Amino acid sequence: MKKNKPTILVVNDDGITAPGIKALIYAMNDIGRVVVVAPDSPQSGMGHAITIGKPLRFDKEDLYEGIEMYKCSGTPVDCVKLAVNLVFKGKKPDLCVSGINHGLNNSINVLYSGTMSAAVEGAIESIPSIGFSLDDYTQQADFEPCVKYVKQIALQVLEHGLPTATLLNVNFPATPLKGIKICRQANAKWAEEFDERMDPHKRPYYWLTGVFQLNDQGEDTDVWALENGYVSVVPVQFDMTAHHAIPVLNSWKFND
């Protein structure tokens, strides 16, 4: 291996044995030296949660020949933090990639996603970072069509870098891929409901359900791109300041 090959941190939220991370590992292994740090069990929907108040387990794994791998008992964000502090010892990798997730992380889903939160944590650590997701929740999901685009996007980020405090949210439709579209996040949300059921002891319990509501007819959104067979690439920032609202708030009258 050439010494100038980039070092790539691979993380996910579906767990270290998930098919999606296997596809991402092999895609990145063609580009650089891969180090994997992933949860020891599925952590979907964890958002940017971190583990506080209980110890974390961090153990070496040997699932794929020639790949340095570790499993963590914590969240996807814990995985990135441990990778930076224990594996790289403060010397940052050249790239952090998260996924490939089973299920989309487009529009509002980016806020709940463990996949994207791992990538966000990478960006917070000033590591160029990308989250990848596929619109297929099954364990039989075919990630092969994604691999070409995963490599292309990763190579572009390695070559050009990313704007400060920015990362990429990449989603793949489960249809033949037409190409890449640079998009904005669609204005959409989940209209959630809780399905009430009864356990054998006649105590109620609840399953979260809901309907995806799209309030955006723009043809420049991630939802439009995915519905029309394109890979959506949305630049994301972790600065959540609503800058456009600052002048409005400055017009308010506060008592001294």
Rank of each mutant, 00 (worst) to 15 (best):
K22G: 01
I153A: 08
V120Q: 07
E192A: 13
A165T: 09
Q156N: 14
E192Y: 04
D195Q: 13
I52P: 00
F172I: 07
W252G: 03
G74Y: 10
D239E: 07
I16E: 09
V11T: 15
V223D: 09
V170D: 04
I16W: 09
Q185H: 04
G15E: 11
P19F: 03
H102W: 02
Y70A: 02
P235Y: 03
E68D: 14
D199E: 09
D94N: 15
D62V: 07
V233S: 05
D59M: 11
A191S: 14
K89Q: 14
I153S: 05
V84S: 06
I31P: 01
G74D: 11
H201R: 14
G122R: 04
K148G: 01
I16L: 13
F143D: 00
Y206V: 12
L111T: 11
F212G: 03
S117D: 05
H201F: 14
V37I: 12
N255I: 10
D14G: 01
C96Q: 07
D216T: 05
L158F: 05
D40R: 04
E219L: 02
V234A: 01
V36T: 08
I108P: 00
V233R: 05
E144M: 04
L111I: 07
D14W: 12
I130V: 12
V147A: 02
K3I: 13
G103H: 09
V80H: 01
A118L: 07
T138S: 15
I8T: 10
D142A: 00
I31Q: 07
A38P: 03
F194V: 07
S117V: 06
A118Y: 05
N101P: 00
W207C: 09
K202H: 15
K151E: 07
P39I: 11
G99S: 08
M28I: 09
N250D: 13
T175D: 06
I246R: 12
V34I: 11
K2P: 10
N228T: 06
G15H: 07
K181S: 07
S73Q: 13
P76T: 09
V36A: 02
P145C: 03
G99A: 10
D136P: 03
S251A: 08
E125V: 00
W190G: 00
C79A: 11
W190N: 11
